[in-house]
């Protein structure tokens, strides 16, 4: 199973986040059609990995969406669509889906994120130092999500690591989406690794500011 539970800082204990990566997905059309049909069994964020820079980049969007869910300020129908829109530098939903969403006939490598919001209070006693918050959650939630994904996504399950994500990034797209071309801060930056980190920061700043 490559589906992992991701524990983010400052997320209420009743919210559980899962994510994984599928490479060489063969049935993007089918998955996309399930989203369009609003099939409740497919309440996932499907993100095209070619538009994602790194785990940090993705998690920044996940956090923004979860925060919107928690504070009651979702701009889109649910937390999963909110993740896709959170990757954008403005509030244009259609645009966000075109750029970061799953595209029939196009998406090859797919990131899947699932956010489960358990009823408030169900597992709200935990702090990071107490194991309480993991004790009460359904043990099989992760397993059943995985079974569902493994059944319906035709692709190679892969760990959601920077090493796996990096080769999938389409930089010409990403540079366009986040306006990374001609940025003075990147001008004197040669070293590849360092430059990537700077570009990642710029992308995340663009997301946080949402075109202000």
């Amino acid at each position: 199973m490559t589906l992992e539970r991701i524990q983010l800082e400052h997320v209420p204990a009743n919210i559980r986040i899962y994510a994984t990566l599928f490479r060489d997905v063969a049935n993007a059309d089918f998955l996309h059609s399930q989203l369009l049909a609003r099939n409740p069994d497919f309440e996932y964020a499907f993100v095209d990995a070619s538009s994602v820079i790194s785990r940090f980049h993705l998690l920044s969007a996940v956090y923004a969406a979860v925060n919107a869910l928690v504070t009651g300020s979702l701009r889109t129908p649910n937390v999963h669509s909110e993740i896709v829109v959170s990757l954008n530098v403005n509030n244009n939903i259609a645009d966000a889906y075109r750029r970061w969403g799953i595209a029939p006939g196009k998406t090859k490598d797919l990131i899947v994120v699932k956010v489960v919001a358990a009823p408030e209070g169900a597992a709200s006693t935990g702090t990071a130092s107490s194991p309480a918050r993991t004790a009460q959650e359904p043990d099989d939630e992760q397993q059943s999500l995985w079974t569902h994904l493994a059944t319906h996504v035709q692709g190679t399950p892969s760990d959601l690591t920077d090493a796996n994500l990096a080769p999938l990034t389409d930089w010409s797209k990403v540079r366009k989406y986040y306006r990374l071309n001609g940025v003075p801060a990147l001008a004197g930056c040669k070293d590849g690794e360092e430059k990537r980190r700077q570009e990642e920061k710029l992308a995340v700043m663009g997301m946080a500011l949402k075109g202000l």
Partner: peptide, 21 residues
Amino acid sequence: AKVLERCWREGVPVPAVHAMD
């Protein structure tokens, strides 16, 4: 946040913005 982003883009040494509400 906006000023930080602008400065950062222009290469002025300031902290990068991670998130905002």
